[in-house]
Amino acid sequence: MHHWKPICLLEDIPPLGSRIVQRPSGGDIAIFRNAEDEVFALHDQCAHKNGPLSQGIVHGRKVTCPLHGWHFNLETGQALAPDVGSCATFAIKVEHGQVLLAV
């Protein structure tokens, strides 16, 4: 069972953009919003060269790393072929316009 932490309002994340959540233990989390107002949470580090995924381009349910163009599925964190690797995902949801992250 998850404990949900309020992060921000959905409107605080630009469509096709992201917001960073810093963790005391290190390893920032990138919160993404796509054009359909779906939200996703990934470790903010590309599996290839540790690029900041939060600065990548969101398209559909994917994000493209800004460093070398690797594509990651926002739902699963898996790199899309021909790329190989994955990023950690985190449970996230929106309730009444509020973005909540599982802790």
Results as ranks from 00 to 15, higher is better:
residue 30 A to C: 08
residue 65 C to M: 07
residue 59 H to S: 15
residue 99 V to L: 07
residue 69 G to T: 10
residue 73 N to D: 15
residue 97 G to V: 04
residue 23 R to H: 01
residue 11 E to F: 03
residue 31 I to W: 00
residue 43 H to S: 12
residue 34 N to T: 01
residue 83 D to Y: 15
residue 4 W to N: 05
residue 14 P to A: 15
residue 90 F to N: 07
residue 27 G to F: 04
residue 44 D to R: 05
residue 32 F to S: 10
residue 65 C to Q: 10
residue 68 H to S: 02
residue 38 E to D: 12
residue 62 K to N: 15
residue 94 V to D: 03
residue 44 D to P: 04
residue 6 P to V: 08
residue 14 P to M: 13
residue 30 A to S: 06
residue 32 F to A: 11
residue 34 N to F: 02
residue 17 G to P: 01
residue 26 G to A: 05
residue 94 V to E: 06
residue 11 E to P: 00
residue 102 A to R: 05
residue 18 S to N: 05
residue 81 A to H: 13
residue 22 Q to W: 09
residue 91 A to V: 03
residue 3 H to F: 12
residue 46 C to T: 09
residue 88 A to D: 14
residue 10 L to H: 04
residue 27 G to V: 06
residue 42 L to I: 09
residue 85 G to R: 08
residue 71 H to K: 06
residue 5 K to W: 06
residue 52 P to N: 02
residue 102 A to L: 10
residue 103 V to W: 11
residue 74 L to V: 12
residue 8 C to M: 09
residue 69 G to S: 14
residue 20 I to P: 00
residue 57 I to W: 12
residue 85 G to T: 11
residue 71 H to S: 03
residue 62 K to I: 05
residue 14 P to I: 14
residue 16 L to G: 00
residue 6 P to L: 13
residue 73 N to H: 09
residue 27 G to H: 07
residue 92 I to R: 03
residue 39 V to Q: 07
residue 43 H to Y: 09
residue 63 V to M: 02
